[in-house]
Design a protein around this nucleic acid. Structure first.
Lengths: 165, 165
DNA sequence: TCGAGATGGGCAAGGAGCTTGACTATATAG
DNA sequence: CTATATAGTCAAGCTCCTTGCCCATCTCGA
């Protein structure tokens, strides 16, 4: 809600703005850009033929990609209940993106891993993301874009990717 | 989905990384930070006594804050249907945050404006946001934080704040 | 080794918030 | 002045998440 326009003038939001004003102008910009990015990636993934996945699935793939994960780990990563994660996995199994395997060393758990289709979708998402970010380099330049990335890396400690609201 | 860990090494994501690698590492960082920020602001708003609002309400307040808006304008801003926006307004009316007034110059439309309680909540959200961003200045420094804000401003053209996924 | 509690996962029911479709009231164009 | 477009709402349905409950398996102390 800090993203409101509290009647700030142009000058107040410019380079000479006070710290407090910077703090008020940052949230709406960050959230707006994040929303645009999710939209762009989602569109790109659909254009590449994966029209039965939602953005939340991508966040699941991110956790499953390296070596798979248990349902509980996936739930923790997404910030939802185990039941919700379980239902999401069931949906992805039905659509052929992941499969459940016995978990080595714990017969209660199951290791959820990407299928070849799941990997293909992940690669499509990577290309869509790169395409979405490419114009940013044209705006900021390569160097400043790296700086942006580095700044974000220092500010984003959790690494958790959960639905925002 | 580009936010996956595609087996990149530490070196590949460092300062010398190729543009393509920067493009792949940016999305997860941006989205993770955005999620953290929304959470922090939402928590701060609740701590200040407004425990019956959700983040989406804050995005509505942002559009209503200066001079009010019609239901249709609010729907456009949030990226949802007019029906959804209408329901959200009805909820906010019931909770005392906004009120509907006749629209000057169009008897079909209604001008939705914040009540005093709505303004109080908006101010609380501003304080919560400033508090959430404050530690960022400690990490990056004031100057670099302004640079981050400026970069984001150049990249976020839409200004629309819609639920992300 | 065995019983008790903790943990991984799934089933079922319910709810919150969004959508589509239909409708009324008002505005605007020919 | 009729015809069409637009602002807003009502109703029904869908999707995804939640809570509550359950079973299977793990872990640990006696």
């Amino acid at each position: 809600m800090a993203w409101q326009n509290s009647g700030m003038t142009e000058a107040e939001t410019g380079p000479e703005a006070a710290p407090e004003t910077v703090a008020l102008s940052l949230p709406p910009l960050l959230l707006s850009l994040a929303a645009d990015l999710v939209r762009a990636i989602d569109d790109g993934v659909r254009e590449r033929g994966f029209d039965d996945v939602r953005p939340a699935h991508g966040f699941a793939f991110a956790r499953l990609a390296p070596d798979g994960a248990s349902v509980g780990e996936l739930a923790e990563h997404l910030g939802v209940t185990k039941q919700a994660a379980s239902q999401l996995v069931e949906e992805l199994v039905r659509k052929g993106y992941v499969e459940r395997r016995p978990h080595p060393g714990d017969a209660r758990a199951r290791l959820v891993v990407l299928t070849e289709r799941g990997w293909a979708c992940t690669r499509a998402a990577d290309r869509a993301a790169a395409e979405a970010v490419r114009p940013w380099a044209a705006v900021l330049g390569e160097e400043r874009l790296r700086g942006l990335r580095d700044d974000l890396a220092r500010l984003a400690p959790s690494g958790r990717l959960r639905p925002i609201w």
